[in-house]
Write a protein that binds this DNA or RNA. Structure first.
Lengths: 145, 145
DNA sequence: CTAGCTGCAAAAGATTTGCATGTCC
DNA sequence: GGACATGCAAATCTTTTGCAGCTAG
């Protein structure tokens, strides 16, 4: 509910420097808005929220910035079956529950999977860097409708 | 390597009838090609393969058919972070390994996750219908390059 | 100063839609 | 026969790109 925590902001700036990325007002605001958002927004959605504060911000910059930050691992692109890409700040390991009716994404933790070793067959595939569970179903809000 | 199994084809036709979908040559061929494919093809890719056998088949029909079949649960749309949607026939429960270099998708089984109960926090969310693991990394082929 | 960003506009890529014609049941 | 599908073309939506001016370091 509050604004972006001081540490998170400092960590972001340090990570940008380390990655050789310039710290522009646009990048700072885009990251701040994404970190504050709880709903895995798309580029379009983020832009809509940001232009109120930053009227000159272009949608292209939002697209470009999200792509740049994601490619440096500062944020994550979330897999969905929608046509629009969604993003989130890379935080604690977590998993996604997606409602196939309203498309809302709910985050949850599942440490037994985080800690579990992948099956043997996977070992010969290559190097696995992360694993996420995506569960689908219908959320209570939609079930009640 | 062989063609679509007899049972699979019969099951498909029965499922179409049950869903109230007409059995057109296009639908049959699209499903057959997808069932034969091992690479989670996109609409574009499927169309490229099918026009050789069915020169009049339009790309629109492939898009429409994939959408229709997916919405009836006969095939699945696979989540990736690419812009193109990919499909697979709904088969045994399985999970995906995606190479972030070549984008190839490798299927694997992981029964301990299939059988595991979701964490308690999820129970109050709604009704979960399926859960899939998506793991990312680099496959051996790309590691060697 | 200058490589890296941004904004603008235009392009490209993926998917959807309207409509007339064809075809499954 | 009539509802549903298809093919075509055009539209739409999302994302990317070229370029000139701006700016952080």
């Amino acid at each position: 509910m509050n604004d972006l925590s001081q540490e998170q902001q400092v960590a972001f700036q340090a990570a940008c420097r380390q990655a050789g990325l310039r710290l522009t007002p646009q990048r700072i605001e885009i990251f701040r808005e994404l970190a504050r958002a709880k709903d895995h927004p798309s580029a379009e959605t983020l832009h809509r929220r940001l232009v109120e504060r930053m009227p000159s911000l272009s949608l292209d910059t939002v697209y470009r910035t999200l792509g740049t930050l994601a490619s440096h691992g500062l944020i994550m692109r979330v897999d969905t079956i929608e046509s629009q890409a969604r993003y989130e700040v890379a935080q604690l390991l977590h998993h996604h529950l997606i409602c196939r009716s309203c498309k809302e994404i709910f985050d949850f933790q599942w440490q037994s999977v985080d800690n579990a070793a992948l099956p043997d067959a996977v070992k010969s595939w290559g190097r696995v860097e992360r694993k996420n569970v995506v569960a689908y179903g219908i959320c209570n809000k939609c079930l009640k409708k």
